Amino acid sequence: FEIPDDVPLPAGWEMAKTSSGQRYFLNHIDQTTTWQDPRKAMLSQM
């Protein structure tokens, strides 16, 4: 499912887009990137 862009990312995360428009996520805390939206895990725990 798609999460609306107005749902905030967890602390330390940033959303970016590739030149082709694909979204990816940067974790500044552990210096990693992922295609997986970290908000999905956050919302599934609620």
Rank of each mutant, 00 (worst) to 15 (best):
Q45D: 10
T33D: 01
L26R: 08
D37E: 00
F1G: 09
D6K: 12
M42R: 12
D5N: 12
Q31N: 08
L9A: 04
I3N: 07
E2I: 10
F1T: 15
P4C: 10
S19M: 12
R39P: 04
D37H: 02
T18F: 04
E14V: 04
T34N: 03
M15L: 12
Y24E: 03
P10R: 02
M46T: 15
L26I: 15
M42H: 14
R39D: 00
G21K: 06
S20P: 04
I29P: 06
P10E: 04
L43V: 14
H28E: 02
Q45G: 11
P4M: 14
Y24I: 05
S44P: 14
T34K: 02
P10K: 04
L43H: 15
W35H: 09
L43C: 12
E14D: 13
A16H: 07
L26F: 04
P38V: 00
M15K: 09
P4H: 10
T18S: 08
A11N: 14
S44V: 09
T18W: 03
K40F: 11
E14P: 00
A16W: 03
G21W: 00
T34Q: 08
D37F: 02
F25L: 01
H28V: 09
D37K: 00
T18V: 06
Q36W: 10
K17I: 13
G12T: 01
S20E: 14
M42I: 12
T32M: 14
T32D: 06
S20W: 07
G21T: 02
W13P: 03
S44C: 11
A11E: 14
L43M: 14
A16F: 04
Q45M: 11
H28S: 06
D37V: 02
W13K: 04
F1A: 13
T34E: 03
D5H: 09
L9P: 09
D6V: 07
G12N: 09
D37I: 03
T33Q: 03
S20M: 11
G21Q: 08
I29G: 13
W35C: 07
T32K: 06
M42W: 11
M15R: 04
M42K: 09
S19P: 11
D30Y: 15
Q22N: 09
Q22F: 03
V7G: 09
P8T: 11
E14R: 03
A41H: 13
N27H: 01
Q36I: 14
G21N: 12
M46W: 10
I29L: 06
M46S: 15
N27I: 00
M15E: 15
T33N: 01
E2C: 10
D30L: 15
V7Q: 10
T18R: 02
S19C: 06
H28A: 09
R39F: 01
I3P: 06
D5P: 08
F1S: 10
S19E: 12
M15H: 09
D37N: 01
K17D: 13
T34V: 02
T33W: 03
D5S: 13
E14Q: 09
P4Q: 08
T32G: 04
E14Y: 03
Q31I: 00
T18C: 14
D5M: 08
M15A: 12
Q36C: 08
D30H: 06
R23F: 05
Q36V: 10
P10C: 00
L43S: 12
P10T: 00
W13M: 02
G12P: 05
F25C: 02
I3C: 06
P38A: 01
T34W: 02
G12I: 01
E2P: 14
F1W: 00
S19K: 15
R23Q: 14
E2T: 11
M46R: 12
P8G: 09
S19V: 12
P4K: 11
T33C: 10
N27L: 00
M46G: 11
V7I: 13
Y24T: 02
L26Y: 11
W35A: 03
T33E: 03
F25V: 01
L9W: 06
Y24M: 07
D5Y: 06
G12W: 03
L43Q: 14
S20C: 13
S44G: 13
Q31L: 07
N27S: 06
H28T: 10
K17M: 09
P8C: 12
D6Q: 12
L9S: 04
T18L: 09
A11V: 12
L43Y: 07
S44M: 08
G21R: 03
K40R: 10
M42F: 14
Y24R: 02
P10V: 00
R23D: 07
E14N: 05
T33L: 03
L43T: 10
S19Q: 07
P4D: 15
L9F: 12
R23S: 11
Q45H: 15
D30K: 11
R39T: 06
K40Q: 07
R39I: 01
A11W: 04
W13G: 01
I29S: 11
N27E: 00
F25T: 03
